[in-house]
């Protein structure tokens, strides 16, 4: 078991607190010249994504969390689990609904996603920042209307619903930012 001291807690280092994995977001060492040293640390709960603040005595240490990130190819879902493959060694991995979360609506077969593993099990699934997806359902386009700025909902092949400009038609392929869920452009 390796440990991480407050002085090793650079941003991105993963530690275990009461059995929960956290990632260091920010670590500030504070010490009056003649006084006692503390580290004021912001950490992200890797299960919930929530960021919390902690104050620790400098020199305190925690167990390192066995967390690693890898880019895997999305294969398919059977409704209950999502299946991925590591292109490096063709190993397959299965993630449940908790791990996949909101990423599910952006997952298209063959796309590469980033998966965080904790003790060898997928903990979170992050889709690419932008995805290219086909529109499977939307109201008919308004010909020539490229200037009014109006939008309408469009359902994508992966199930996500995004707002698109009025001139976009069913069957077209668009690029979407998965972090904001916003339409970016039409792909020809």
């Amino acid at each position: 078991m390796s440990t991480v001291s407050t002085s090793d807690m650079k941003a991105g280092v993963k530690i275990l607190i009461d059995g929960v994995p956290f990632s260091i977001v920010e670590n500030e060492y504070v010490k009056p010249g003649k006084g006692q040293a503390f580290n004021r640390v912001k950490i992200r709960n890797l299960k919930t994504g929530r960021v919390i603040e902690k104050t620790w005595r400098s020199g305190d240490s925690f167990e390192a969390a066995d967390v690693e990130e890898r880019d895997l190819q999305y294969l398919y879902t059977d409704g209950e689990f999502w299946h991925f493959m590591d292109p490096a060694n063709f190993e397959q991995h299965t993630a449940d609904k908790t791990a996949v979360g909101d990423a599910a609506q952006w997952l298209k077969e063959q796309d590469e996603v980033r998966i965080m593993f904790w003790n060898g099990q997928p903990l979170t699934v992050t889709p690419p920042n932008t995805v290219t997806l086909k529109i499977v359902e939307t109201d008919p386009g308004v010909r020539g209307d490229t200037v009014t700025g109006g939008t309408k909902p469009a359902k994508l092949e992966t199930g996500a619903v995004v707002k698109v400009p009025l001139f976009i038609n069913e069957g077209e392929v668009i690029k979407v930012d998965t972090r904001t869920g916003e339409y970016l452009s039409r792909v020809k």
Partner: peptide
């Protein structure tokens, strides 16, 4: 707005200067 320090041993928890130092820094 400063999180309560964790993992303090008893003599430190009762050390006035520890709390004054933390208040000074924070």
């Amino acid at each position: 707005g400063c999180a309560l320090p964790e993992g303090l041993a008893e003599p430190d928890f009762a050390d006035r200067d520890l709390w004054l130092d933390l208040l000074m820094s924070a």
